[in-house]
């Protein structure tokens, strides 16, 4: 009964947005178009793109910067569209969060370590402007930023004042805040699949923290700061695994859904290979979680799935066009395409 009611409330909340997205989904690139772009030279690839929704954005692009700008403009327009159709729902916030936290990370690094590192990565895709974040960090009084940005910034400034300033700590604190906030927003959407996805992301990030923590010989304060709350694997349980070997971590969670992934990691003797294998397995695992979104016809999952598909396309087009501009062969370009694309291609 509760499930049916959720289904209907999602229908009335997201039905209109999903209907509009269904039409836009028809404009997603198909495999033939992608292959044609990979196989052609730059001019022909642009001609193929001109037959798609990317046409107006890439028209006349002759340099890497112009390609980047065109693709970012496209993505910004897509986000504006999503914001418009999902107004009043938390799904738009869910999608913008990663950009907000990314921008926060870049601005914080600049504040504490100087330089302009990541300047080109500062994106306009967040829900908070970079100026607002900068204003907040400079201590300007009336800056309107969401509570989660303010809290994360405060946590970082406390950490920077207390201990040795370290860019890695900024990443650790902001990443944790991002994962926890994203879970909170997912819970607001009422979507079990989104919540599940966020919980899995937290668990995988926490497992990685345990493995990396041991490798870097970190103390208990690192785990206290880095381990995010809200995952299926409770923090208290993870604290007990501080400094333990990968074997011990794997042995401690035999019944969990990550057991197979951890067992796969143990097949490699070398620590660095284990980490790489775990990173790849995590991506695959989360991809499988995302794939479950396709079972929902009307709901926030469909909105998220659409935007992730668009982001994936943009990443793919960037690789293709930048590859073409640098005279890379089709084989090399294909090998550099995002893993999500490769998985779709082989299905």
């Amino acid at each position: 009964m509760k499930r049916s009611l959720t289904l209907f409330s999602q229908g009335s909340t997201y039905g209109h947005a999903v209907g509009r997205i269904m039409v836009h989904e028809a404009g997603l690139l198909n495999m033939q178009q992608v292959y044609r772009m990979i196989e052609s030279d730059y001019a022909e690839a642009l001609a193929v793109a001109s037959e798609t929704v990317y046409g107006p954005y890439l028209e006349g692009a002759a340099t890497q910067v112009e390609v980047e700008e065109g693709l970012m403009r496209f993505l910004a327009n897509q986000y504006q569209f999503i914001d418009r159709v999902t107004q009043g729902t938390p799904v738009s916030e869910f999608l913008h969060l990663k950009y907000d936290f990314h921008n926060l990370k870049v601005v914080l690094r600049r504040k504490y370590f100087g330089g302009t590192e990541g300047e080109e990565l500062l994106s306009g895709l967040g829900s908070v402007t970079v100026d607002s974040i900068e204003g907040l960090l400079e201590g300007e009084g009336r800056v309107e930023v969401p509570g989660y940005v303010r809290e994360a910034a405060e946590r970082v400034s406390e950490a920077m004042e207390q201990g040795e300033p370290d860019p890695q700590r900024i990443d650790t604190i902001v990443d944790r805040a991002f994962l926890e906030q994203r879970l909170a927003v997912a819970e607001e959407t009422g979507s079990e699949l989104l919540v599940d996805f966020c919980r899995a992301s937290i668990d995988l990030a926490n497992i990685l923290i345990l493995v990396r923590g041991r490798k870097l010989d970190k103390g208990p304060e690192y785990y206290e700061e880095a381990l995010a709350e809200g995952g299926e694997l409770k923090r208290q349980r993870l604290f007990k695994l501080e400094g333990e070997t990968v074997e011990a971590v794997a042995a401690a969670m035999p019944g969990s859904r990550y057991a197979r992934m951890l067992a796969g990691m143990l097949e490699y003797g070398d620590e660095a290979t284990r980490l790489t294998s775990f990173d790849r397995a995590s991506d695959e695992f989360l991809l499988e979680e995302l794939r479950k979104f396709s079972t929902v016809s009307v709901g926030p999952e469909r909105v998220v799935r659409y935007m992730l598909a668009r982001e994936n396309e943009v990443a793919m087009l960037r690789v293709i066009f930048v590859g073409k501009l640098n005279a890379l062969t089709p084989e090399v370009i294909e090998s550099r395409l995002p893993v999500t694309y490769m998985r779709e291609a082989t299905r």
């Binding site: 039905g15 209109h16 947005a17 509009r20 269904m22 039409v23 009307v298």
Partner: peptide, 17 residues
Amino acid sequence: VGITYVNHVASGILVED
């Protein structure tokens, strides 16, 4: 209820096309 549900989606499609 059934018509209302499909209407939400259909109205979105019709706005676009």
